[in-house]
Amino acid sequence: MSSPLILLPGDSVPSEYLPSSNSSAPLRLGPGLRLLSQPPSSSSSKTSTGHVLAATQSGILTTDPKRNAVSLLSTPNRRYVPTSNDLVIAQVHHSSPDYFHCLITPQTPQVVLGQLSFEGATKKTRPMLKQGDLVYARVLSTGLGAGAEVELTCVNPATGRAEPGGLGPLTGGMVFDVSTGMAARLMRASSSSAENQESVDGLVVLDELGKKLEKVGGFEIAVGRNGKVWVDCANGGDSAIKATVAIGRCLSAIDEHTLSLADQKKLVTRVLREMKIET
């Protein structure tokens, strides 16, 4: 459809807005949508017709026919509601014999992460995490009903491997807070080509920072849907600290202000110059 569709929590998604896929790939749901029913598995149809979806948050419906995916582009906000399959950055609060008890936002109850929920972990080789340590994890389940515990994992339950790459403990680096809307944009940008970043999210800051900081060793980034961004520069020393702080400043500025693609590039250049980072 040519006109954008704005949904509120509880609204159903009209079938004509769902992508029509000629592949056998299943319909992929992004954050903000819940599957209420789907066509019978015996159906020979390869389109998305027949799926009944409802919105769990407000936003603009976006579709990706190539990936047979549909999601909600939410407006920036600071409140995060855990959803299955979300990638989050969690901080260990304390541990028990079977679980690490973690925080994903200041205002929500603690979540649990199994002590063996890491790639190749056994009772002898499991990570010895302590209070304050960070982990990059996926929401495994949110439970049913009020008060249900949210469970995290650092592996794909089907393969036992840390997929996508980077799941597990995060060492070093710094963590910056952004809105959940900005976090969603960054996650899409980090997994898309530069052309898709520009056309879908209007976000080129990661690509621009990558080019500018290549001479000083580049950087690693992990983005959580809970509004946390972990950044680590590989070269160490004072230049790494400056580069890390510069990245955080750029992300915060773009989160707080609506900047065009050209303005984002100018922002990166200005911040790196102010931090006296040679590019």
Rank of each mutant, 00 (worst) to 15 (best):
S12R: 15
H93Y: 11
D133C: 14
C250T: 03
M128I: 04
A183R: 06
T122D: 09
A54Q: 15
V204S: 06
I104A: 02
L116S: 10
T180E: 12
L7V: 14
Q115I: 14
T63K: 07
D207I: 00
H101M: 12
S74G: 10
R273I: 01
M128H: 05
L206Q: 07
R273G: 07
H257V: 11
K266Y: 14
K265V: 15
G10H: 11
L167F: 04
S44C: 00
P26Y: 06
P106S: 14
G172D: 06
V111N: 00
S84Y: 01
T244R: 11
K124A: 12
F219A: 05
E274I: 03
S23N: 11
T180H: 09
A253W: 04
C250S: 05
V175F: 04
S58C: 14
T142R: 04
I254C: 10
G173Y: 06
L73K: 10
R185Q: 14
A55H: 05
P9N: 13
G50H: 02
S141T: 15
L186F: 12
D98E: 12
G173N: 04
A222I: 01
V216A: 01
L36H: 03
G202P: 09
D64S: 14
D11C: 15
S252D: 09
R138A: 11
L18F: 09
R161G: 00
L8P: 00
R126I: 09
L5F: 08
E195N: 05
S45P: 00
F100W: 15
P31I: 05
A194L: 07
V231K: 01
L152V: 05
E220Q: 11
L113E: 11
G30F: 13
S37K: 05
K215L: 08
E278P: 00
L7G: 12
R270Y: 11
R79P: 00
E256C: 06
V81Q: 06
I6T: 14
L73H: 07
E274T: 04
V200S: 12
L186V: 15
I104F: 06
T171S: 14
S43C: 07
A183C: 09
G165D: 02
K124E: 12
T122N: 05
D11Y: 10
E163S: 07
A69H: 13
E16C: 10
A184Q: 14
V81W: 02
N22H: 07
P9M: 10
A69V: 06
H51D: 03
G181H: 12
L134N: 01
L72H: 04
R185P: 00
A148N: 03
T258G: 11
E208F: 02
K266E: 15
A54W: 01
K265S: 15
S21K: 02
R79G: 00
S179F: 09
P19S: 04
S48R: 01
L140Y: 07
F100L: 15
L103H: 14
